[in-house]
Each structure stands twice: as structure tokens, then as C-alpha cells.
Design a protein around this nucleic acid. Structure first.
Lengths: 153, 153
DNA sequence: TGGATAACTATGGAATATCATGGTTTTTTA
DNA sequence: TAAAAAACCATGATATTCCATAGTTATCCA
């Protein structure tokens, strides 16, 4: 399966319409449906999205839990209840629902970021801040890792 | 079979009439009947609902229990005794019975929440509280899942 | 190789269809 | 026969489809 790579910035109009980058779109369509399965990311202010394989993954995760258990009900509520199956229209666009735009603080532009088996949709400004943060953390993590490595030698 | 995904908020009038979201309705109809099978959820203040497949599943669940056992008696009474087959009218609406509205503390609005193979009908306020909890639990579950995955490598 | 042409992409706007919802009339039934 | 339930109808809002255009990239052929 071809991975989602690179990032693209597109405009989103007041109705919430936005073009899915052609590169991502062709991957999704090749995987079976011309629908984008997406949900508000649990730990970052962004929308997480993918094609049929992502949906299948969630199915499998839930199937491992006993049917009609409380745990399964809770997870399926969070995962399915908070998700959307967005149809890609003839012009290659989707409509990003209000709730998700709010969660990701999206106003007039969005950045699509490839993550291999899925991709994320960000507000461009917030994505840059997040990346800057991530870089700093990565540096300190690497230092920690290097120190630990030294000690163990 | 297509899953119930996403959530929708609709109004319910004083007669108890409420539109079933078109997305859910088409799934139910595609599965055979123009009816919604539903009952008061056992452990949450909500109405649990689905199409023909849900009914079949519950039958199977009960059949797996030892016949004439207390557990089976209690469950079948709770599920079937309090269940209803609500007809979808020409405008796509159902009438939610008084008893169920009471159980779910529903007044003027309801939230339909997709859960894959079934869906729930909530009072919007109560659902929001439950959803916030569910998201937190989903995060910790995902971490558990990631750890287990690491260990197995 | 270079210029022209054709295809594709992103985007805006308008036309169309669908959906949710309130109200009214008819039918049922208690 | 009165009350409740079901079917019917109307309408505004919303979502979906369709069309147009400008900019870009790819293709083709002399």
C-alpha cells in the first residue's frame, strides 16, 4: 500500500469545502472507496484521516474486545461516534464538519500532512508551532538517549 | 455491512417524533427492514438501537447462555421485554416511546451516536459528559495497545 | 529542443436535490 | 365519540451537484 507522504496547503471556504490533495486522493481511491474516514485526533489539535484501511484497523481493534462489554461500548463510542465518513465529490473536495474545524482551530487554510498509513489535517499556524515544539523535544530526547548510551558503555 | 459512523443532533417534538438521521436510516433500510429495533440500554441512560442484524446478534448472545439459567431469564426480560420495533414513517421519523425518553432523560433534543454495528440515542448534555470520559479512556487504551505491541516485538 | 496543446488541479459560484421539522387532516381504537 | 396515532403536506435550511475559470503540469510533435 502506497504511503501518504509530503504536505500540502489548501484553502478552505466558509462552507467548509476543501480540496483533498490529488496525491492523497489517488491513494484513498486506490484503496477502495472515494471516502475519507476521519476523526478529531485524541492528543493533538488536528484531524486524523485515511482511507478504508484505517477504518478496518479500528474494526479490528474493537473486535478484540468482548462484545457488549462496557469497555467496547466506550471505545466504539469514542472512535465511531467521533468519526465522519466524508465523501469526496466530483471535484475532489470534502466538507470538513464544523466540530472538527473547531477542534483543530481551522479557519481559512489547512495543511495536509502525510504520516504513512494515514494523514493529518492542521491549521497551518498551529502545525508550525507544533513542529517547532516537536523539534525541541526531539533534541532533548536525543541528548537523554546519548547520555544513557554513554553511561551504559 | 456498513457501520453506523458519526453523530447527529436532532429535535424531538412533544409527540415524541424525531427524524432518524438519513445516514443511519439508509443503513437500516439496506439491511432489510423499515424498522428500528431498540431498547433502553442496560448500563447507560440512553436508548440502544439498530436494524435487523442487531436483533439477530442479541438472539445469538442469549442463546449462548445456558437455557433456564437465571442470567438468561434476566437478560432476555430486560432486552426483549422493554424493546420496541419502531416503524420509520414516510418522512423518515420514528416515535420514541415515553418510557425510553424517561430512561434517557430526553426532553427536546436528542443525539444519535454511531457505534459501528449499532447506535445510541442520548440526551445531548448527558452524551457530552459520557463522550469526554470516553475520549480519555480511549487515549489510555491506545497507550496500552502500543505498549503491548512493543513488548511483542 | 522548444513551442503548442492538452490534461489536471484547485477554487469560486450557482443551480438542484435532500433533509429536518412544523402543522394539518385522516384513520384507528379505546 | 373523544383521544391518540398515523398518514399527509408544506417549507426553510442545508447539503450536494453542476458549471466555469485560472493556474499549473504533463504530453506531443515538428
Amino acid at each position: 500500500m502506497e504511503p501518504f507522504v509530503s504536505s500540502f496547503q489548501n484553502k478552505i471556504d466558509k462552507k467548509g469545502r476543501v480540496s483533498v490533495p490529488a496525491a492523497f486522493r489517488s491513494i484513498v481511491v486506490a484503496n477502495g472507496l472515494n471516502q475519507i474516514f476521519c476523526y478529531s485526533a485524541l492528543d493533538v489539535p488536528a484531524v486524523e484521516a485515511g482511507g478504508k484501511p484505517l477504518l478496518t484497523k479500528i474494526y479490528q481493534l474493537l473486535e478484540d474486545l468482548p462484545p457488549y462489554s462496557e469497555e467496547r461500548d466506550i471505545l466504539s463510542t469514542a472512535l465511531f461516534g467521533g468519526s465522519e465518513n466524508l465523501k469526496i465529490d466530483n471535484d475532489g473536495r470534502i466538507i470538513l464538519p464544523e466540530a472538527m474545524r473547531e477542534h483543530a482551530k481551522i479557519t481559512d487554510h489547512v495543511t495536509f500532512v502525510g504520516m504513512g498509513d494515514k494523514f493529518r489535517i492542521w491549521s497551518p499556524q498551529i502545525f508550525e508551532e507544533y513542529m517547532a515544539e516537536a523539534r525541541i523535544k526531539a533534541i532533548s530526547h536525543r541528548k537523554l538517549f546519548a547520555d544513557a548510551h554513554k553511561k551504559s558503555m
